[in-house]
Design a protein around this nucleic acid. Structure first.
Length: 294
DNA sequence: ACCCAGGGTCGTC
DNA sequence: GACGACCCTGGG
């Protein structure tokens, strides 16, 4: 299944559009493997591809080493079918805070990332900071992923489960994963043993049932499960990942509890659903990005 | 030098 | 349900 794919140098262009800003997409916290280049473009590795995305004049240019037709790959990964203009206008009508945060994160799109990569990446993210998370994932990929050379530079795909089969707890520790080592190991083993039927997750319509399945994985708690549901190609928008930033902003805007650490999660979830409905996942991302950057 | 926080989860009480 | 512990790293 892996290693057999044929990577082809390809290029694809679309007209520049609203809701597609490189910084907003790649720095909004949903992904860890995209890096800004000297020319302002971004290069990343995903689903076995190496891709560079650049804005020139009124065009968005995608080029890289890609499996299959680059147009299909780009449409799927960047979710280009989704109408963000409509989503944003709905959210902006909720209140002035949402209007501000949607304007701030105007160019955000939520990606369709590989499920396994998203699961392991967000297990790593627990009680961790972004530079370190990126480092751990990069070293994991360098050591166990496939090497791809493009424009004389080396890139490494995120390792498949098969490649991680014999990786030990100590190996994860040596990569700098810290106490998450055991969680990574056990989750990988559970997935390899099909203790969770990944294919079924895609077919199940009830998001809460999918979440319950994900919660069986070590290292996956409510927050990480929501991130997986939202940022992977499971693509469920009816979740609301609550981390320190979101707790902070939701408390400031709506709950106004003098002691932020005492804010009840259920309370946040309730108000989030009431205000944003089935768009709460995207609303969360605008709020998170706005609060963390500004 | 020291302390703190970072896209939380887990075990224990 | 609450509470502390937990690897490690960068910044104050």
């Amino acid at each position: 299944m892996e290693g057999q794919k044929i990577l082809k140098e390809q290029k694809y262009e679309i007209i520049d559009q609203e809701s597609f800003e490189l910084k907003d997409i790649f720095d909004c916290g949903q992904c860890f493997r995209w890096n800004e280049q000297e020319d302002g473009s971004y290069t990343g590795v995903f689903k076995g591809n190496v891709l560079n995305v650049k804005k020139v004049d009124n065009k968005i240019i995608f080029k890289g080493l890609v499996n299959g037709d680059i147009k299909d790959v780009v449409y799927e990964y960047f979710d280009l079918e989704k109408n963000y203009t409509e989503i944003k206008s709905k959210l902006a009508k909720v209140d002035k805070y949402m209007q501000t945060s949607v304007e701030y994160g105007n160019g955000i799109r939520i990606l369709n990332q590989d499920l396994i990569e998203t699961i392991l990446s967000f297990i790593i993210s627990a009680n961790n900071n972004i530079p370190r998370i990126k480092g751990i994932i990069e070293r994991l990929s360098e050591k166990y992923g496939n090497k791809i050379i493009w424009n004389k530079r080396s890139y490494y795909t995120f390792p498949t489960l098969e490649k991680l089969k014999n990786v030990t707890v100590q190996d994860y520790r040596d990569l700098g994963a810290g106490f998450r080592d055991k969680r990574l190991f056990e989750t990988v083993q559970m997935l390899l043993n099909n203790e969770i039927d990944v294919n079924k997750l895609y077919l199940e319509k009830d998001t809460s049932k999918v979440k319950d399945e994900l919660l069986r994985l070590p290292g996956v708690g409510p927050k990480v499960a929501d991130c997986i549901l939202l940022f992977s190609d499971l693509k469920r928008l009816d979740v609301f990942p609550i981390d320190v930033w979101v707790r902070r902003v939701m408390n400031e805007l709506y709950l106004k509890n003098p002691d932020e650490t005492k804010v009840n999660k259920k309370e946040i979830e309730k108000i989030a659903f009431k205000k944003f409905g089935n768009l709460e996942g995207i609303a969360q991302q605008y709020l998170f990005y706005w609060k963390r950057e500004a």
